[in-house]
Write a protein that binds this DNA or RNA. Structure first.
Lengths: 114, 114
DNA sequence: ATGACGATTCTATAATTCTAGAAATATAGA
DNA sequence: TCTATATTTCTAGAATTATAGAATCGTCAT
């Protein structure tokens, strides 16, 4: 991942509403969630939500598909994994002080299957 | 880590110069680097650099100490580890699709000792 | 076609962030 | 004390981002 992409992804997540949206979509899983449901779950106005979903989409952090009148958003796992890998490897130089304690979370995830 | 702190840390890193500064300080290790050396290494103006170092410091991502005329900055490992842990556990709900592939980086870091 | 619904785009205003010049502060040495 | 060096703080203008009202677009059912 290039620095520019990393900055884009970090900027997209550096916003309370957008972080909340992303977290909600991760919890919703690969099937995702309609924009309206996200709006109801978070209390964000429809137009503001749309703007923020677009910002997340531009960073690859969410994907969308239309289903009838609804537009379904889902979390972009690849982009998030790439961002985390960039932060750990490129940015933190895989320093043990930072990265070693994360092994527990990562391996538990593999074992528990999310 | 609370959401507000995470947003603060993400905002601090969501800037090309600040990301570069942080990376440089990680590479410099716990002993850190004088502000002037960071300025020379990056080509950032002294006053702009000072502003950005303050922003990183407010997020806990760098620490500083005075040594004579110089002020030495070093990377805040704890804050970065907390941010990464927050992103993996709270934000990504430890989903295997995202977190499992990171185990390699994390465990390699532990073995290689940075 | 018409109306309802879900969502986006347009638009304008408010607020924040970025940048850099100028001035100020802190330390060290002559 | 005077000067040079290292860094920060003050300040203001430029640029970007955030928010929300209004209008628009796409889909579905009648």
């Amino acid at each position: 991942m290039e620095t520019q992409n990393a900055v884009g992804a970090l900027s997209a997540l550096a916003h309370a509403s957008r972080l909340e949206i992303f977290r909600l979509l991760v919890q919703a899983g690969p099937e995702g969630m309609a924009a309206g449901d996200v709006a109801r779950a978070t209390g964000i106005l429809a137009n503001t939500l749309s703007t923020n979903l677009n910002i997340l989409a531009a960073a690859g952090l969410v994907a969308s598909r239309r289903e009838g009148r609804s537009i379904i958003y889902s979390a972009g796992y690849d982009a998030m994994r790439d961002l985390l890998a960039f932060l750990m490897e490129d940015c933190c130089a895989s320093r043990a002080e930072i990265c070693a304690p994360l092994a527990a979370i990562a391996s538990e995830a593999g074992a528990t299957e999310g």
